[in-house]
Design a binder for these strands. Structure first.
Lengths: 151, 151
DNA sequence: ATAAATGCAAAGACTTTGCAGGTAC
DNA sequence: GTACCTGCAAAGTCTTTGCATTTAT
């Protein structure tokens, strides 16, 4: 996985805002803050986490707005819903292209994995089933080394 | 995917009951009915569906018991929690070994997919991360041919 | 100006839990 | 007989929705 330098994130932020504006969507301060928070988050935040981070800058933002905005961003293809987790769905705004994850079922840590063949595999599935494929999800569950030691 | 003949399902039912008994768990009529229903179900039933099917034979079985039993069977490794779906988690009692799924986001249809390399891929992930892997989940989302025509 | 977005609170869907009574062993 | 299981209802989470108010354009 290529390193994510700040410059590319700034570009991506601008590009996202551009696309939203082009579709006639309004760039409210809340939306701006949410997009920024998702992009800046190194991991795979829940809606709760996004909300908490935003409250620093925009203390009046409601959880409902975060839910609505996250759903919007997902519908627009700007972020990825990972969809697992005991405390709600997790989102990934860094790499909207799906990629495999390794998830610790003890502490919840999530690592990004690399699988070059993935697109080919999915394309083969699409061909054999006749489905028009939109996305996919590949998650591996286990116990991370740290939890194994302390467990 | 090899065809599932009735004989192998009967064997599997007996084997599951055997293992549960060996662990000192009680074989109540409700549990028996739930295991049977999960094994007999050709698809990937939700807890609601399992409950509805059981009500024919054991009309007093509560939803809570189905939840508890399904959690038990999952913990014992006898069934697989697929974990997606708008109306609750889905379960697979036919092949507790994880396998990829193709899911229609329009009508909810779920196909089982075949990927021979999957165990190797997961083993490689385990090796590179140091995780002790328990299970995995590989779901592909799209629109099935039927929905595409009528859409 | 006005159509769209926010925030609040209430409702919804799925799941878990506590406990009294029942039951497999 | 006893530890375990069931069923009920209540509570818990996460998420969505309706509507009056605010706001980006």
């Amino acid at each position: 996985m290529e390193p994510l330098n700040p410059a590319s994130q700034t570009d991506r932020l601008a590009a996202i805002l551009e696309r939203l504006k082009a579709k006639g969507l309004r760039l409210t301060p809340q939306r701006l803050a949410i997009v920024k928070a998702v992009l800046a988050h190194p991991g795979h935040p829940t809606v709760e986490q996004i909300h908490r981070e935003i409250l620093n800058d925009y203390p009046t933002t409601s959880l409902a707005t975060v839910y609505k905005t996250v759903a919007l961003l997902k519908a627009e293809g700007e972020i990825l819903e990972l969809g697992f987790g005991e405390q709600g769905s997790r989102y990934d705004g860094l790499r909207p292209r799906p990629h495999p994850h390794m998830i610790c079922s003890r502490c919840g840590e999530i690592l990004d994995l690399e699988l070059d063949d993935l697109d080919d595999i999915v394309a083969r599935f699409a061909a054999s089933t006749g489905y028009a494929v939109d996305s996919h999800r590949f998650d591996v569950f286990g116990v991370c080394p740290r939890c194994r030691e302390s467990g």
